[in-house]
């Protein structure tokens, strides 16, 4: 029952966002709201097994959803900006020392792994290439390795980020 309601509600909200500015009830017209309710119900009936595969409902906690917004606006934006100036520097000077290294993620849930991999891809000098399903390790391509890093067996997750402790945020949000 929960998957149906979640899918229907999210579909309804998404429809409302897409048709914003159509009328006078707040920002929407009555016709569009009715259409949104019907579309949400139909989507919930048809797609509840596709969108809610696991039995794990902890992401429904509103505190976690608000934390995602804070994470995107704060630490993630800082790292994204730094990543781009880093890439600009590498493009202009051509000073690279690439390599693929192993990274101990320390995450268990699939959502946390996904968020970590995306964050790694969009943050300074690193790109996630592959994942070891058994040990939850990530293989990342680093554009400029410091001297001596290639000797190590594996890196910890927070060593690839510069200012913010991104893995702590992700663990707080998704684990």
């Amino acid at each position: 029952m929960i998957p149906f309601f979640v899918t229907a509600f999210v579909a309804f909200l998404f429809y409302l966002v897409l048709v914003v500015g159509s009328g006078s009830v707040l920002f929407w017209s009555t016709e569009e709201i009715t259409a949104g309710v019907i579309i949400g119900l139909v989507t919930g009936i048809l797609c509840r097994k596709i969108f809610c595969k696991s039995e794990d409902y902890r992401m429904l906690n509103p505190v976690r959803l608000i934390q995602i917004i804070f994470y995107l606006c704060g630490p993630f934006l800082v790292e994204l900006t730094k990543a781009n100036f880093d890439v600009a520097y590498r493009v202009i000077t051509g000073r690279i020392r690439p390599g693929i290294i192993r990274l101990r993620s320390g995450m268990k849930s699939p959502l946390a792994m996904t968020m970590l991999a995306h964050s790694i891809t969009l943050t300074p000098g690193t790109l996630s290439v592959d994942v070891d399903e058994k040990t939850h390790d990530l293989f990342i391509h680093v554009i400029h390795l410091d001297e001596g890093v290639e000797k190590k067996e594996a890196l910890e997750a927070k060593e690839v980020f510069s200012y913010m402790d991104i893995p702590k945020w992700i663990r707080r949000i998704a684990e």
């Binding site: 693929i100 290294i101 290439v129 070891d132 391509h141 594996a154």
Partner: peptide, 28 residues
Amino acid sequence: SHAIARAAHRNGQKPQQAVVDKLAEAGL
């Protein structure tokens, strides 16, 4: 980009000028 990188490694693209390639050593 994640998908392309994984596919390129499975396709046998070696990272050029690389000092280390732990993924090839792991042999996944």
